[in-house]
Every structure is written in structure tokens, then in C-alpha cells.
Amino acid sequence: MQTKRTIFSNRALPIALIAPQLVITLIFFIWPALQAIRSSFEREDPFGLRTSFVWFQNYTRLFADPTYLSAFGRTLLFATAVTVLAMAFALVLAAAVSRVMRSANAYTTLLVWPYAVAPVVAGILWWFMFNPSIGILPYVLGQFGITWNHRTSGTDAMVLVVIAATWKQISYNFLFFLAGLQSIPNALSEAAAIDGAGPFKRFFTIVLPLLSPTTFFLLIINVNYAMFDTFGIIDGTTSGGPNQATNILVYKVYADGFLGLNIGSSAAQSVILMLIVIALVFVQFRFVERRVQY
């Protein structure tokens, strides 16, 4: 990619221009990250009076802890479910909207609204609708003979957080898929139609392969979202319960550190999450740089 170089005659101006962003990054990202790395090697007493250096003990304990390992598996399940569902629904909606000529803008606006809802509010919204005592959905499900109680059933709770997290992410995916679909020339679909491909065949052999750069980008973004950005939703609906059933890694960092006051373990967990993010971003950049080839 060709970038335009600007030549400054002195050094003060460019430094002044990037300084605000640098300061924010340093204070709110780099400093806490370094602090977390340091804390992850330490053990603190419950009153915060004494800390001692324990090398990798926090890490070795984590990987020997069955609750942590099961949280790992749970996170994988949760992230996969949210990513697949959010992308599949968004793709269907985007394909539908890109087919309608009239009021496509109205549909787009409406479909994007959920993205503007704060995660906690989204969580509470679904918590309310699925509330076993007063919610409308358990009542409806009850009519079909299905008992819903996410306070006692781990499966119900997981389904609830997956729905809440998915619902919020569909908007974002929808926008990108719609833009991707609109950038595919109509003539390609027409040529395929003349070449004897029906609507489904056209979608799978022409449209989907041409969407692959968008799909890949969204895949990374969605995994990132599901793993790290769903704290608010979990906290608003199930708070990780019942019996750890929805306690995913990012929520466990908070629960162990701020509720359990085990700062060392919590810090070690956040360092591991950090490494996962770094790995995901690395994969993304490697692929996006080369573009998904076609």
C-alpha cells in the first residue's frame, strides 16, 4: 500500500500532534497492562498490606485449577456459538436487505439500533424478558411445556447469554456484510444466472467467495467480541452463574480479582487473555495484509 509521507520541518509539531493519543494510551492501556504483568508474579495478602514475589506460581496454579480449565472450555463454546450465530443471522439479514430496493435504508437503520444499546442494558433487557418469574418468554415457553429457569439450569443460562451477546453483535456484522454485498457488482450475479446457476447456487459459488475478506475480518472481530467484550452482558444477566455455568474467562478475571480479591491470580488470567488478543490480532494482520486471495 502506498502511503503519503508528510515532511515536517521541525520535530516539535509532529510530537505535539501525537502526544494526546500517546498519553491516553500510556495511562489507560500500557501502564495497567504493565501493572497486571507485575501483579501476576506477586501474591498479596487479603488486606493488601504485604506482597511477595512468587515467580510463575499464579500461572502454574491456574493451569492446575479445574475451574479455570473448565472456564476455558466454556469460553470456547460461548465464543464459537456467538460468532457463528451472530455472523449467520447478520449474513441472512444483509442478503435480504440488499435484495429489496425500497426502504432498504429504513431496514438498515432499524437493524443497526441494537448496536447502540449498552452491553449491560442489553443484558438486563434479555434478563427481563427471560426472567423465570415475570418474563414473557418463559411464560410462552411454558405453554409449549418447556420449563425455563436460567437461575437453576446451567444450559438455560448459557443459552440466555449467547442470545443476548449475539443479538447485540448482529447489527455490527450486518453493516459490514451489507457493505460487502453491495460492493459485489450486480453483473456477476446476472452472468451466473445466465450461466444456469439458481439463487442458492449463485450465493454459495459467487457471492460467498467474494465476501471472504469481509467474512474473515468479521470472524476475528466476533471472536474478540465474544471473548473480551461480553463482560457487561454476563454481569447484567447471570453474573457467571448458576454454579459457574456462564463464568467465561473475562468474567472470571473480574470475579476472582474484585469479588474474590485474589489479585495475583486475576492478574495472571488477564495476562493470558492479553496474549490471546495479541495472537488473534497477529493472525488478522497477517491475513488481511495478504488479503484473502481470490
Binding site: P185, A187, L188, E190, I194, G196, A197, P209, Y294
Partner: peptide, 27 residues
Amino acid sequence: PAERDIAMVFQNYALYPHMSVRGNLEY
């Protein structure tokens, strides 16, 4: 269109960009 047994050449060619020339001809 498929049932009419016609072929069309488009202004911007409308070749399938993710397929090789052979793939385009075979499709």
C-alpha cells in the same frame, strides 16, 4: 435466464474474479 439458453457478454465482462479463466469457462 438459465432456461432461455442464451449467452451474454457484459460491458465490464463480469468475469468471476475468484475463479481462473478455466473456472470461468467451465462454470
